[in-house]
């Protein structure tokens, strides 16, 4: 079971809400899909700069593995207030710990909910269908 202290998108991003701050990352399933356990296959991650506004569902960045480029989508909208600078040079963090150290951006939320958000149980069903 994946962490139930956060919400998910069917496109495999998560958001953990603390007050009016949302921390966003991608799930272990997303990482596994991209690199099949070879963490060195992750080659590039393009993240936004602090200050940029993102809408719920909008693409805020991109991640490249040896063989695929994938979008990173925002579960909720808001202003980017912090970016995990360690990620771009240490993509292996995403494989090692996608839930805590592998967070990508923090946003100041403009809204705290969206119909697209899934709880952990609903996200598990999405993964079961795609695996």
């Amino acid at each position: 079971m994946r962490p139930d202290d956060r919400k998910y998108l069917s496109s495999h991003e998560w958001i953990k809400i603390d007050g009016d701050i949302g921390t966003i990352g991608i799930t272990d399933f997303a990482v596994q899909e991209l690199c099949s356990g070879n963490e060195s296959d992750l080659v590039y991650c393009d993240l936004p700069e602090a200050g940029r506004s993102v809408e719920a569902g909008e693409t805020f960045g991109e991640i490249e593995s040896v063989k695929a480029v994938a979008d990173l989508n925002a579960p909720l909208g808001g202003e980017v207030i912090e970016v995990n600078a360690a990620i771009e040079d240490h993509l292996e963090i995403l494989a090692d710990d996608p839930w805590e150290r592998g967070w990508l951006i923090k946003i100041k939320l403009s809204a705290k909910t969206s119909d697209a958000l899934l709880d952990a149980a609903a996200y598990e069903e999405v993964v079961a269908q795609e695996a």
Binding site: E33, C35, S36, K67, Q129, E130
Partner: peptide, 15 residues
């Protein structure tokens, strides 16, 4: 679609 049997699952498998 990513759910198409040709592409379902890990990227490496689809290659």
């Amino acid at each position: 679609n990513a759910s198409d049997p040709v592409y379902r699952g890990p990227v490496a498998d689809s290659y």
